[in-house]
Nucleic acid binder design. Sequence first.
DNA 1: TATCCAAGGTAAGTT
DNA 2: AACTTACCTTGGATA
Length: 308
Amino acid sequence: MERGAIDVADLNGPFDLQATVESGQSYLWNRADGGTYGDARAYGGDEWYETVVDPIPGVTDERVVVRVRQRGGARDGTVEWESTADAVPLLTHLLRLDDDLDAVLDATPDLPLLNRAYDAYEGLRLTRDPTFPCLISFICSAQMRVARIHRMQRRLRETYGDVVELDGEPYHAFPTPAALAARTEGELRDLSLGYRAPYVQRTAEMVADGEARPEEAADLEYEDARDSLTRFVGVGDKVSDCVLLFSLAFLEAVPLDTWIRTTIADYYPDCERGSYADTSRAIRDRFGGEYAGYAQTYVFHYLRSGGE
DNA sequence: TATCCAAGGTAAGTT
DNA sequence: AACTTACCTTGGATA
C-alpha cells in the first residue's frame, strides 16, 4: 500500500472534500462509516472516502483503489490518501485539484445568490467522474433523491462489480458495461432501480457492443455534445448535461434540474425561455458562461442543503 | 395506520 | 416541434 498527503495550501484555491464528494455530482465514493450522501449530521468531519477507479488514459494504466480524507480546513488542511498506487495524479484528476478555484470565483458574476452559495461551501470543486459510471448514475437519478441515487450505485457495485483489495480489505469496482449489459431488467429492478432498470441495461448494452462511446462527446462543441449523449436510453437533455459537467469537463453546462428551475423562477425569471435549450443558454449567460456549471453546482448544493 | 406526495426526468404517444 | 401521460420506489408529511 502507498500513502501520501496533499497540502491544500499548495493548490490554487480552497478545497473541501466532503462538499465535493457529497454535493450530488458523484455517486462513486463510499464513506467508510457507511453513511449515505446528504447525511451530514452523522459526519465526523474527517471520515475516509473510498472508491475504485478503472484505467483512465493518461492518468492511470491500472485499476486503482483509493481512500482519502481531509483534516483541517478548506484553505489550510491536508488531504491524506492510501492507495494501491501513487494517488496524487488520480485524485488531482477526479477532484479537479488542478482547477484554479480562486480564478473561477473571480470570473463568476457578482450575484447575491451565487455569493451566498460560494461562501457557504468554500472549497467545493467539480469532479471528473469516470464516464460510464457517471452516465449510469445519472440515468438512475431520474425522479430520485440524492441519498437514494447513492444507495443504488452502491448496490450496483456490491452486486455486479469486481472485487479489488487494498491492504487485505475488499472494495468493489463499478460494474463494467458488459457486466450490466448481461443483466436482465428484472435483476436490475431487484436493486430498486424501478423503471430505470431497462434504461441501464440497454445503455450498458450500447456501450458494451461498441455501438456508441460516451467519451466521444468530449470532442464535440458543447451543444452538439449534449445532443450526442441523448442517443443513450434514459438520457435526455438534463442527464446529458450532468455527464458533460461532472465527467467530461464542459464547465459551462448548467443542468436544468428541479432545483435550478425553481431558482430560475424565483431569482431569474427572465431566463425562462420555454425550451430546454433556450433556457439553458440564458441561465448559462447569467452565470457567467465559461464556469456557469460551477455556479450551478454551488447553488444546487446550497439550496438542497437548506440554505434559503 | 393509511394515504398522499415529491424526488436532480425520460420515452412514447398525441396534437 | 410542443404538449400529455405513464412510469418504479421510498421516505417523509398529512390526515
